[in-house]
Design a protein around this nucleic acid. Structure first.
Lengths: 140, 140
DNA sequence: ATAATAATAGTAACAGTTACTATTAGCAAA
DNA sequence: TTTGCTAATAGTAACTGTTACTATTATTAT
């Protein structure tokens, strides 16, 4: 991975934008905002930096299948709820798997809940084998 | 919506393929399989029919953000787990939100669990207003 | 059989994102 | 400070998964 990251004007600007805003913007929305202050910035630069900021833990990705990726500069532990009609994304605090969903928190947002989906991901048995060759004793 | 659906050779073939197979194929994988028996079939036809089969409840979509859509001919109540490395998708039975995740069921698959994500979707307050104009008294 | 039209094959277009390349600029060390 | 290394940039092309378009074909009700 990179060792010598540089804080360029563009990167700074993108990070600032993410932190100032609460709308969980798409890459394109970040581009349009940042472009107002820095007209020459390239869309590729926005994508590249959003990716890097997420990989280094300075921002989060909000993935929703079928929709463009959204980004969040708020690193506190929280979840999101997405509007199926207009696509807007709002924060939900304190969702706990063990105690079930905090219905109160959902109600606070004013959303009418339509869908709860649990997405599970992991390593299949085959991929664990090849992974183990790289990580001899396993990490978990 | 459509009222007079026709069971074309192509549609039948696509549905049969989905029902016979357990790999939760992508549209492209369905296309490649069906093409062996029906070489002239068009990719657009596969997409159109997969969409229609899902809209009419004869198949299910498996959405995973960032990956191509997958399709499932198995209509029984179950969830899925996706491999983060090779992308394969396996079935998980009997996941119950109220009682928490059935860890046993996940273990049966042999997967090493990496991520559990809860995706919430609904109508935001603004969109409820415009929705209410269409559904005067509301349905829920 | 026939007529109405749903569905098709083939192709172009599209959106979101990533890759490529020559040039610029951040940063460490002299 | 200048210098030199190279990370990062702007601009653009390419790519992937999917949808839209259109003339033609095939299914189904009569």
């Amino acid at each position: 991975m990179h060792t010598n990251l540089r804080m360029t004007k563009q990167r700074k600007m993108i990070l600032d934008e993410l932190r100032q805003v609460t709308v969980h913007p798409t890459a394109d929305q970040v581009y349009e905002s940042v472009r107002k202050k820095m007209p020459g910035i390239s869309l590729g630069t926005v994508y590249r930096n959003l990716d890097l900021l997420c990989r280094t833990g300075m921002a989060r990705r909000i993935e929703k299948s079928g929709s463009p990726m959204r980004y969040d500069g708020d690193l506190s532990l929280h979840n999101h709820i997405c509007c199926t009609k207009c696509g807007r994304v709002d924060d939900i605090r304190a969702i706990d798997l063990e105690t079930g969903l905090e219905e109160k928190e959902i109600m606070k947002t004013g959303y009418r809940l339509i869908k709860i989906k649990i997405e599970l991901a992991g390593l299949c048995p085959e991929c664990q084998k090849s992974e183990d060759r790289l990580e001899p004793k396993g990490l978990g």
